[in-house]
Amino acid sequence: MQSAITNTRTRYGWATILIHWLIGIIFIGQFALGFVMVRLSSQRTAFELIQLHKSLGFLLLGLVILRIAWRLGNAAPALPSSVGTLERRAGPMAHLALYAFQIALPLSGWALVSVSTLEIPTMPFNLFVMPNLPLAESDLAESLWTSAHWYLAYAGIALVALHVAAALRHHFLLRDSVLTRMITPSSSRD
Protein backbone atom coordinates (compact mmCIF):
# COMPACT_ATOMS: atom_id res chain seq x y z
CA MET A 1 0.00 0.00 0.00
CA GLN A 2 1.62 3.25 -1.14
CA SER A 3 1.02 6.51 0.75
CA ALA A 4 -0.40 9.38 -1.25
CA ILE A 5 0.89 12.94 -1.27
CA THR A 6 -2.57 14.41 -1.84
CA ASN A 7 -5.70 14.11 0.26
CA THR A 8 -8.37 11.52 -0.41
CA ARG A 9 -12.04 11.50 0.58
CA THR A 10 -11.21 9.92 3.96
CA ARG A 11 -7.64 10.94 4.88
CA TYR A 12 -5.07 13.69 4.51
CA GLY A 13 -2.04 13.09 2.30
CA TRP A 14 1.62 13.44 3.23
CA ALA A 15 1.88 17.05 2.04
CA THR A 16 -0.96 18.28 4.25
CA ILE A 17 0.22 16.25 7.26
CA LEU A 18 3.81 17.45 6.99
CA ILE A 19 2.85 21.12 6.60
CA HIS A 20 0.24 20.89 9.39
CA TRP A 21 2.65 19.45 11.98
CA LEU A 22 5.53 21.68 10.92
CA ILE A 23 3.35 24.78 11.33
CA GLY A 24 2.07 23.49 14.67
CA ILE A 25 5.56 22.83 16.04
CA ILE A 26 6.89 26.19 14.85
CA PHE A 27 3.84 28.10 16.12
CA ILE A 28 4.05 26.58 19.61
CA GLY A 29 7.85 26.88 19.59
CA GLN A 30 7.59 30.54 18.62
CA PHE A 31 5.30 31.20 21.58
CA ALA A 32 7.78 29.53 23.97
CA LEU A 33 10.75 31.29 22.35
CA GLY A 34 9.02 34.67 22.51
CA PHE A 35 8.13 34.11 26.15
CA VAL A 36 11.75 33.25 27.06
CA MET A 37 13.63 35.79 24.93
CA VAL A 38 12.01 38.85 26.51
CA ARG A 39 12.81 37.62 30.02
CA LEU A 40 16.55 36.96 29.64
CA SER A 41 19.11 39.04 31.48
CA SER A 42 21.83 38.38 28.89
CA GLN A 43 21.38 40.91 26.08
CA ARG A 44 23.56 38.90 23.72
CA THR A 45 21.54 35.71 24.19
CA ALA A 46 18.29 37.67 23.97
CA PHE A 47 19.47 39.31 20.72
CA GLU A 48 20.35 35.92 19.19
CA LEU A 49 17.01 34.44 20.23
CA ILE A 50 15.16 37.46 18.84
CA GLN A 51 16.92 36.96 15.50
CA LEU A 52 15.94 33.26 15.56
CA HIS A 53 12.36 34.24 16.49
CA LYS A 54 12.19 36.62 13.52
CA SER A 55 13.62 33.97 11.17
CA LEU A 56 11.11 31.37 12.33
CA GLY A 57 8.34 33.96 12.04
CA PHE A 58 9.10 34.48 8.35
CA LEU A 59 9.33 30.71 7.85
CA LEU A 60 5.96 30.31 9.58
CA LEU A 61 4.40 33.00 7.39
CA GLY A 62 5.65 31.26 4.25
CA LEU A 63 4.46 27.85 5.41
CA VAL A 64 1.00 29.15 6.30
CA ILE A 65 0.66 30.77 2.88
CA LEU A 66 1.79 27.48 1.30
CA ARG A 67 -0.70 25.57 3.51
CA ILE A 68 -3.58 27.82 2.45
CA ALA A 69 -2.62 27.52 -1.24
CA TRP A 70 -2.38 23.74 -0.89
CA ARG A 71 -5.74 23.63 0.91
CA LEU A 72 -7.43 25.67 -1.83
CA GLY A 73 -6.24 23.19 -4.45
CA ASN A 74 -6.63 20.02 -2.41
CA ALA A 75 -9.97 19.45 -0.67
CA ALA A 76 -10.01 18.26 2.93
CA PRO A 77 -11.40 14.79 3.60
CA ALA A 78 -15.03 14.57 4.61
CA LEU A 79 -15.72 14.51 8.33
CA PRO A 80 -16.89 11.21 9.81
CA SER A 81 -20.67 10.81 9.98
CA SER A 82 -20.46 10.89 13.80
CA VAL A 83 -19.54 14.61 13.72
CA GLY A 84 -22.56 16.71 14.61
CA THR A 85 -24.01 19.73 12.82
CA LEU A 86 -22.64 22.27 15.29
CA GLU A 87 -19.09 20.93 14.89
CA ARG A 88 -19.44 20.81 11.12
CA ARG A 89 -20.20 24.54 11.18
CA ALA A 90 -17.72 25.52 13.91
CA GLY A 91 -14.80 23.50 12.50
CA PRO A 92 -14.27 25.54 9.33
CA MET A 93 -14.60 28.80 11.29
CA ALA A 94 -12.01 27.58 13.81
CA HIS A 95 -9.63 26.63 11.00
CA LEU A 96 -10.15 29.99 9.34
CA ALA A 97 -9.36 31.69 12.67
CA LEU A 98 -6.19 29.58 13.02
CA TYR A 99 -5.05 30.61 9.55
CA ALA A 100 -5.84 34.25 10.28
CA PHE A 101 -3.82 34.24 13.52
CA GLN A 102 -0.95 32.37 11.89
CA ILE A 103 -0.75 35.11 9.26
CA ALA A 104 -1.51 38.08 11.50
CA LEU A 105 1.04 37.13 14.13
CA PRO A 106 4.13 37.07 11.86
CA LEU A 107 2.87 40.18 10.04
CA SER A 108 2.51 42.02 13.36
CA GLY A 109 6.06 40.96 14.25
CA TRP A 110 7.29 42.21 10.88
CA ALA A 111 5.47 45.49 11.48
CA LEU A 112 7.04 45.69 14.95
CA VAL A 113 10.60 45.38 13.64
CA SER A 114 9.77 47.72 10.75
CA VAL A 115 8.70 50.59 13.03
CA SER A 116 11.44 50.07 15.62
CA THR A 117 13.70 53.09 16.09
CA LEU A 118 16.62 50.69 16.77
CA GLU A 119 16.79 49.95 13.02
CA ILE A 120 18.26 46.47 13.51
CA PRO A 121 18.17 44.64 10.17
CA THR A 122 16.22 41.40 9.97
CA MET A 123 18.20 38.61 8.33
CA PRO A 124 16.16 35.39 8.15
CA PHE A 125 18.56 32.57 9.02
CA ASN A 126 21.43 34.97 8.12
CA LEU A 127 20.67 34.46 4.42
CA PHE A 128 19.52 37.92 3.30
CA VAL A 129 18.24 41.21 4.65
CA MET A 130 14.44 41.27 4.81
CA PRO A 131 13.17 44.72 3.89
CA ASN A 132 11.00 46.51 6.41
CA LEU A 133 7.36 47.18 5.74
CA PRO A 134 6.72 50.76 4.58
CA LEU A 135 5.70 52.03 8.03
CA ALA A 136 6.88 55.10 9.89
CA GLU A 137 9.36 54.49 12.71
CA SER A 138 8.41 55.79 16.14
CA ASP A 139 8.36 54.76 19.78
CA LEU A 140 4.56 55.03 19.79
CA ALA A 141 4.20 52.76 16.75
CA GLU A 142 6.66 50.29 18.28
CA SER A 143 4.63 50.22 21.48
CA LEU A 144 1.41 49.69 19.51
CA TRP A 145 2.82 46.82 17.46
CA THR A 146 4.44 45.25 20.51
CA SER A 147 1.04 45.15 22.21
CA ALA A 148 -0.67 43.84 19.08
CA HIS A 149 1.96 41.11 18.69
CA TRP A 150 1.62 40.15 22.36
CA TYR A 151 -2.19 39.97 22.31
CA LEU A 152 -2.22 38.06 19.02
CA ALA A 153 0.30 35.56 20.44
CA TYR A 154 -1.78 34.82 23.52
CA ALA A 155 -5.03 34.64 21.54
CA GLY A 156 -3.35 32.42 18.95
CA ILE A 157 -1.97 30.01 21.53
CA ALA A 158 -5.42 29.83 23.17
CA LEU A 159 -6.89 28.94 19.78
CA VAL A 160 -4.21 26.27 19.26
CA ALA A 161 -5.01 24.85 22.72
CA LEU A 162 -8.69 24.68 21.74
CA HIS A 163 -7.74 22.97 18.46
CA VAL A 164 -5.64 20.38 20.32
CA ALA A 165 -8.38 19.82 22.89
CA ALA A 166 -10.94 19.26 20.11
CA ALA A 167 -8.65 16.76 18.37
CA LEU A 168 -8.04 14.87 21.62
CA ARG A 169 -11.78 14.87 22.35
CA HIS A 170 -12.43 13.29 18.98
CA HIS A 171 -9.74 10.68 19.53
CA PHE A 172 -10.27 9.69 23.16
CA LEU A 173 -13.94 10.47 23.86
CA LEU A 174 -15.70 10.18 20.53
CA ARG A 175 -13.23 7.59 19.19
CA ASP A 176 -13.58 8.75 15.60
CA SER A 177 -10.96 9.26 12.88
CA VAL A 178 -10.65 13.07 13.03
CA LEU A 179 -7.18 12.98 14.65
CA THR A 180 -5.82 9.80 13.11
CA ARG A 181 -6.40 11.01 9.57
CA MET A 182 -3.96 13.88 10.32
CA ILE A 183 -1.38 11.36 11.55
CA THR A 184 -1.68 8.45 9.15
CA PRO A 185 -1.53 9.52 5.50
CA SER A 186 -3.90 8.49 2.79
CA SER A 187 -2.95 5.68 0.50
CA SER A 188 -3.47 5.17 -3.18
CA ARG A 189 -6.26 2.72 -2.27
CA ASP A 190 -8.30 5.25 -0.20
Rank of each mutant, 00 (worst) to 15 (best):
L18P: 01
M1N: 05
A94E: 09
L22H: 01
G24E: 06
L105D: 04
M130K: 08
S3L: 12
R169F: 10
F31W: 15
T10W: 03
G109S: 10
V83L: 10
P121R: 02
R89E: 08
L79G: 02
L107M: 13
A100Y: 01
F35I: 00
S42N: 14
W70T: 00
G29S: 08
Y12M: 01
A46D: 02
P106K: 03
L66R: 00
W150T: 11
L152V: 05
M182N: 10
V129N: 12
I23F: 06
L159C: 09
I183T: 07
G62A: 10
F31E: 04
T6N: 08
A75W: 00
S177D: 15
L49V: 04
P185R: 00
L61C: 03
V178S: 07
E142Q: 14
L174S: 11
P131D: 06
L105I: 13
A69D: 05
S41Q: 11
P121L: 03
E87K: 09
L159G: 07
A165I: 10
G34H: 09
V36E: 13
G91M: 02
G109K: 07
S177K: 11
R181V: 01
L105S: 04
M37A: 12
R71S: 14
T146G: 14
A165N: 04
A104G: 15
L59N: 09
T180A: 04
I50Y: 13
A78C: 00
L144S: 07
H95P: 05
G13A: 04
N7Y: 00
L159A: 14
A111L: 09
S138K: 01
A76H: 14
L105Q: 11
W150M: 05
M1F: 06
L52G: 03
A90E: 08
S187A: 05
I103R: 08
S82N: 09
Y12Q: 00
E87F: 11
R39F: 06
S3C: 06
Y12D: 01
F35L: 07
L96S: 08
N132I: 00
F27G: 05
P185N: 00
T184F: 02
N126H: 13
I183R: 03
L168Q: 05
V83H: 11
G156E: 01
G57I: 05
V178Y: 09
E48P: 00
H171L: 02
D190G: 02
A166V: 14
I23P: 07
S55I: 10
A94P: 06
L135Y: 06
G34N: 07
G29M: 05
F128E: 12
N7R: 00
L49H: 04
G84E: 10
M182V: 08
M123A: 13
L173Y: 12
S81P: 11
A32H: 00
I26R: 06
V164L: 15
T122D: 13
A69T: 13
I103A: 07
T184Q: 03
S116E: 12
I68F: 04
M93V: 15
V113K: 02
S116C: 07
F101E: 02
H95Y: 09
R11D: 05
E119Y: 08
A104W: 05
G34W: 06
T146Y: 12
L52K: 04
T10P: 07
L174N: 13
A111D: 10
M123D: 08
A155Y: 01
E87D: 15
I50Q: 11
G109A: 08
E48H: 12
A161R: 01
